[in-house]
Each structure stands twice: as structure tokens, then as C-alpha cells.
Write a protein that binds this DNA or RNA. Structure first.
Lengths: 134, 134
DNA sequence: CCTTGACTTAGAGTGCGCTCGAACTTGTAT
DNA sequence: ATACAAGTTCGAGCGCACTCTAAGTCAAGG
């Protein structure tokens, strides 16, 4: 598989793939036909996992730590596990925060929803809603 | 309340507060004692709400749109409601994504956890785990 | 009065994560 | 053979959201 195919399959741009290789997130790809990168399907799994880490907000510097451990082989598994466990904790915390904010958003929206008549200001609507909830 | 007090109460830096005013996220503060900004407690509610929007990943440009509507007064309430509803949808989607990633993370960690004996590579552990799940 | 610390402005700098451009080489279809 | 699509490297540039610096002004306690 060449870089363009990989780009199509992963949704990354070829620019990004080269950038990831440059910084060490992707292993140095073998240049099969002198110069051009040649990928085999196994890279897809890794890129997909990188995507998960990205979605969950892991900064590149941490993904890099993970990638380096991975390349050092199986004796780093426990370190990788710890790294992922720490990350999981952060993700859980973040989800909880988001859900709390979502509740606030719901309240705010509910406050606006009832006001087809003109209100003094948005706080008036919000305050009325709060009283209604009590 | 002066800018330093506000900074302490909100967790924002004075730099950030001035920056927010400059770009229009915060209303232009009255300079009470010629030059120095004077805030009253009502600003705290707005800053807290801005924090919620930030936590939930709303970009500044959208917060700005909301802020401008807010300043135009109560006749913009329905527009604000729509804006928040759209944002809420994005937040819900994002939470769902995070939860899906969390499940992947759990699987991966579980795969590592069982491997106190040496594995060939991390995929070996992951693959074994997948078989166990089936 | 004087010090000290908080305030002011305008504008430059930072860190992150890409993203793009230029100039060139390689691979493939006709 | 020729065209042209897709690849290469290197380095510069970008958008976001701050963050900091410089050079100065102001205010409250001793």
C-alpha cells in the first residue's frame, strides 16, 4: 500500500502521515521501490488506535511516549498499561465534566424555550426556570 | 471588584480577562477610577457560563456569536437557543465518541493486564483478549 | 512623600497540531 | 515515448487560544 492509499483508508492526509512519521508516531516506513513508502495493512490498526487516543484528547507528546514504548517491544507492556490507565482516568473525568455541562446547557435551553414572549434579559428566563424547578 | 480580584475568583488570568474583553467575549468594563476596570458580581455568572462552553469545546468564534446576540438583548433569545441546541448536539455526539473510545481503552488495558508472562508483542495480547471475548 | 504592588496599553511570542508550497523524482496508462 | 498523476524532501506558514513583555500609570499603607 502506498501513502495515498493509506491516506484514503485512514482519513489522514499524506502530509499528516509523513508528519507523523517524522515525529515518530508512525514507524519509519520501508521505501520499497527506492524512495516511495510501502505500507502493509497492520499499520491501519495502529493508526486507528492513534485516532482513538486523539479523539480522547491525548496530546501528541504522550502518544509519542506510548509509541516509543511500543517500539521497544513486549517488555514495556506494563508501562504502556499504566500509561493507558492514567489516560483512561482523565477521559472518565472529562466525560463527567461534559455531562455536568450538558445539564447546565439543558437548563439554559429550557429557560429560553418557554420565552416566546419578550423577556427582560436571558438571566430573567434562566431565573424563572430555576424557580420552576424548585 | 478590580481585575485582580476577578482573576482570583474565576481562575482566569488578568491577561486572559483583558484578552476576552478585547475580542468581545466580555463586555467593555467601566473604568471607574479613571483607567482601571471595575466589575460587579454579575460578570461572574457570564464567565462561568463561558467556562462551560469552553469545557464543552465551543470555539471562541462561536462563543463570540453568542456573546454578540446576548448583548443585542432579549429579542435574540430564540437565536441563542438555537445556537445552544446545536452545540448541545455536538457535545452529545462527542460524549458518545468518548465512551466508545473508552470501551476500546478498557479492552486494550484488559489485554495488557493479563500478560505478566512475556508476549510476542502488544497485538498478541490484544488478539488473545478478542478471542476471549467472543 | 514614598514605596510597593496592582493596574494600563499595544504588540510580540508561544505551543499545539497540523497544513501547505516549492522544486524535484518516480510510476503508470496510452 | 510521453504525459501526468502521485510520490519525495525540507522548510515555512497557519489557526487557535492564550501568554508574556515592555514601558509606563495609579492607589493605598507606612
Amino acid at each position: 500500500m502506498k501513502i495515498g492509499d493509506l491516506a484514503r483508508r485512514t482519513g489522514l492526509s499524506t502530509h499528516t502521515i509523513r508528519y507523523y512519521e517524522r515525529i515518530g508516531l508512525l514507524p519509519y516506513a520501508s521505501r520499497a521501490s527506492s524512495q516511495q513508502r510501502e505500507y502493509d495493512a497492520s499499520i491501519l490498526v495502529w493508526i486507528e488506535f492513534l485516532g482513538r487516543l486523539k479523539t480522547t484528547g491525548m496530546p501528541i507528546r504522550d502518544k509519542l511516549r506510548y509509541a516509543r514504548l511500543r517500539e521497544r517491544g513486549p517488555e514495556t507492556e506494563q508501562d504502556r498499561r499504566i500509561l493507558l490507565e492514567e489516560h483512561r482516568t482523565k477521559v472518565r473525568t472529562h466525560i463527567a465534566e461534559l455531562q455536568a455541562c450538558l445539564a447546565v446547557l439543558d437548563t439554559k435551553i429550557a429557560g429560553y424555550a418557554g420565552s416566546d414572549m419578550v423577556e427582560k434579559n436571558d438571566d430573567a428566563a434562566t431565573e424563572r426556570r430555576k424557580r420552576a424547578v424548585r
